[in-house]
Write a protein that binds this DNA or RNA. Structure first.
Lengths: 193, 193, 193, 193
DNA sequence: GATGAATGAGAGTTCATTCAT
DNA sequence: AATGAATGAACTCTCATTCAT
């Protein structure tokens, strides 16, 4: 049964990012990943229970690290506004500097079946949770309107950032993704106030 | 069953919405669509060149009608604010009343290969175009800030609405999608002003 | 049931020679033949019972005319040697001047199933019969050896001519097929004497 | 089943001869070959790129062995006449003792598309080459006429033998193919002299 | 007789997954 | 733990043939 650690575990995950990003989830064969990782096809199944498991593990890995590091950066902020700015900045900066990861997150991850989304939802929910915490904090700090519906506001915030990333991924990337931080932050902060 | 010429085209398209929505694009066999449509497998290939073509035609069909009707509604509005409100309202109302179409648009459509996205991009771009026109109009009418980057603003607006729809589709739909119009509009309008 | 006459019967047969020659029997669709003939797909089935029937009818048509005309030419000959020369000449001249027919005869006709060969065998047998008659005549006229096995001799004669045609069809046809009459006749006549 | 590496390649080839000979190339399904070989359908595609590849590999295999063994036999001959006799004898003996192989060579092999013929031409050409060498040798040894066109003579020789085999394959085989060696050789040798 | 839209059986090929070594 | 040959279920698409008009 799927070992979740070991050096090869990570090697396969790295190979998967590359191949998924290059060819897309459905076009990538397990043997492609194995080849890229320099292991035998069967070895993949020692570390992952199936192909979908690789994609989900990939996302969970990335997302956990993402949220963890983001929480660290947020701990240095003094108020909700700074935190929101940090969220947008970190999100755009991280994916902007890792196009392969961005492609997997924005495109490939959405190619899997409904039921599997559960594996994706969990780590994503912790990010949603984080954003909602910041909005709540902003309301407590009287920075944002009291009547603001936190959940809806979170959707707007996340949706805005997410769309900006998707557009960048789908484009030929003629601009720096991080450069969009200012206008996006500006728009969202005014919306919340 | 399909008496008039050309009727089968639509029958197959309707069947495709149902089956894609029910089972997802990759899990749907062409024979499932044919069965749902009450035609033979081969008949599908008289009207569509392949499975992907069905999905793309589906989206183009829906999106063209969507943009067309939306433009009609917008023609009744007096200013950019009313238009923005109409866009959000129409978007949420339309998809909120057609969960199957919403599922296809939000989920299944994103499951196809990169190159095929071209077929999707075109009709989507006309919607993006529409939103940008409204934002530009708002700037001209001095309703929105002059320094607003129209393209980025459009991404934020579309991303916000889109995320709201996606969350609803993924949920067990315990609320009316259209009910989110107010808070979303409120947030976005403040962001633009 | 397949009507064996009518103007369209011949139109379809002519279209079949072209398409079979161009694309090969298995690569040719019935709709290709219909298209080339300028009739509807279904019309083909008024005149022929199925696709194989077209190929067989084609061959029978060609072969009957071939043997008939050849017999006429032979009637002008005075002895077996002249007749053999005429056979070789006529065979090479006829196929050499109709590359499409040659292609169908040499290549496409051999692409059909065993049991169907019966339809091909019959008209071919009358050609074999003709050759054997000439050899027998040659023996009677003391032109050829008495101990000659007529059947085997016929196989050698036909095989030689047939191979010469096949090589020409498969080649880019940089020479006139009829030019091979002399050396082929020379070889065979010496073999028979 | 298939213990030693590479053994399956031959097992599949052997199964292919049987099934092609029994049902014909087009009537044989890949799963029939796999079944006859006692392997899974997919296994066939590990060793061959597609169905056509099986037929071509089959022929190349047989033909290479054929020419190789024939060359060995020819090395024992003292002059062109003996060699020509050996060629005819070996050709008829080999195919006469392996009716399945003969059927594939004479009938099924000619059922494939033009472009694929390239795969067939090469090994066949080496046989043609061999025959031409012998004819040339006969001319040098003053056994055959100097003015003989070697290429045409080769076509006559090969065509004669080939036709004899084809007739035998198509018949119910009431005679020994090898028994035709004498009359065929007799006819051809006189033609060449 | 003619049409051509509709049919649906059919088959080649792929590839995730397994398991003997 | 690692391998990679073998598996076989799965699925798209083609096209000869039919038949209502």
């Amino acid at each position: 049964m799927a070992r979740r650690s070991g050096e090869k575990h990570q090697v396969i995950l790295d190979a998967a990012i590359k191949t998924f990003s290059r060819s897309g989830y459905h076009r990538t064969r397990v043997s492609d990943i194995a080849g890229e990782a320099g292991v035998a096809d069967g070895t993949v199944y020692i570390y992952f229970s199936n192909k979908e498991d690789i994609l989900i593990s990939l996302f969970q890995n990335l997302m956990n690290r993402f949220v963890e590091e983001l929480r660290t950066e947020l701990s240095r902020c003094r108020n909700a506004n700074e935190k929101l700015e940090t969220i947008i900045d970190y999100h755009l900066r991280t994916l902007g500097s890792r196009p392969e990861q961005a492609r997997v997150t924005q495109i490939e991850l959405r190619q899997i079946d409904q039921k599997i989304n559960e594996g994706i939802s969990k780590p994503l929910l912790s990010y949603f949770q984080l954003i909602e915490e910041v909005i709540e904090e902003g309301k407590k700090q009287a920075l944002y309107r009291q009547e603001l519906n936190t959940r809806t506001a979170r959707k707007v915030v996340f949706g805005a950032i997410d769309e900006v990333v998707t557009c960048w991924v789908m484009s030929s990337k003629p601009y720096q993704l991080a450069d969009l931080k200012e206008p996006v932050f500006d728009l969202l902060i005014r919306g919340l106030q």
